[in-house]
Design a protein around this nucleic acid. Structure first.
Length: 265
DNA sequence: ATGCCAGGTAACACCTGA
């Protein structure tokens, strides 16, 4: 919790699948990986139930946008967290807690994103996903006009290409792989954004999610759906990025593992 | 075609996830 400006910061995104169930794993990972900023998804609790004190004791400031049982995002930072904005603009009737923004280290704008899953295809859940992606794009356009160092990180629930999944045939009917989902994800990148994880792992078959079922982790039956989208000003400062697979192999793991990038400031 | 596993809620079954 320092105001000192480090020369390089490490930003990570982690879908924890319940912050309360994952607290021991999360605290151990914060200690070992030592990210400066963390974007959390699926905290699955209201703000009053967030384990704030434990996280603060680990050296992080906390801002959350929670919801009972489902969804919920949060931002952790070793720096003060300023100008917090909760919720994705564009639909006043949307009550799902899937989006928040804040400024960290005085000049880096981050957004925590939990994009709707959208299954099953052909239902209102899939149309909600596509509409949510349109709203996200509109918000990105607004933010890009500010010419800031911005990173939109999170669980995008899209498998962008066949090289991002162990077997495209196994997932072909899934909302994560539909041409419409992929086209809308590409439309985000076409705004001029740089996706950090795939930029530093161009060969593909680097995954951030493995299902709990069917021994997916042991067989490496995973896919990549967690991303860090960087504005041009963030991309200019991008020095490395990747996936930290270690947390997925531990007891009581989330089905996702963290993705991360480093920016020189 | 369905459940497989995990979490939450609420109640000892069902919903959601990806």
């Amino acid at each position: 919790m320092t105001n000192a400006q480090p020369s390089k910061i490490r930003i990570a995104s982690f879908n924890v699948n319940s912050v309360k169930a994952r607290l021991p794993n999360l605290l151990a990972w914060l200690r070992e990986f030592a990210p400066d900023v963390v974007l959390l998804q699926e905290i699955k609790c209201v703000d009053d139930a967030f384990p704030r004190l434990e996280i603060e004791d680990a050296g992080y400031n906390v801002a959350s946008h929670g919801q009972k049982t489902y969804n919920g995002v949060a931002i952790l930072s070793k720096s003060p967290i300023e100008d917090v904005s909760r919720g994705l603009p564009g639909d006043e009737s949307d009550v799902q807690a899937r989006y928040m923004e804040a400024t960290v280290f005085g000049k880096v704008r981050v957004a925590a994103i939990y994009l709707p899953n959208g299954n099953p295809v052909g239902t209102e859940k899939f149309s909600y996903k596509l509409a949510w992606m349109d709203r996200l794009r509109a918000r990105m356009v607004e933010q890009l006009a500010d010419d800031e160092i911005t990173v939109w990180g999170g669980d995008y629930n899209v498998i962008p290409t066949d090289g991002d999944v162990w077997d495209p045939r196994a997932m072909k009917d899934d909302a994560l792989m539909q041409p419409e989902s992929r086209a809308k994800f590409r439309s985000l990148l076409h705004l001029g954004l740089t996706e950090a994880v795939r930029t530093f792992n161009p060969a593909g078959h680097v995954y951030s999610f493995w299902d709990y079922q069917r021994g997916a982790w042991q067989k490496d039956h995973g896919f990549l759906i967690d991303f860090l989208l960087c504005s041009p000003q963030a991309a200019d400062r991008l020095t490395s990025a990747g996936v930290d697979k270690a947390p997925r192999g531990q007891e009581k793991a989330s089905d996702h593992t963290p993705v991360w990038c480093e920016l020189s400031l």
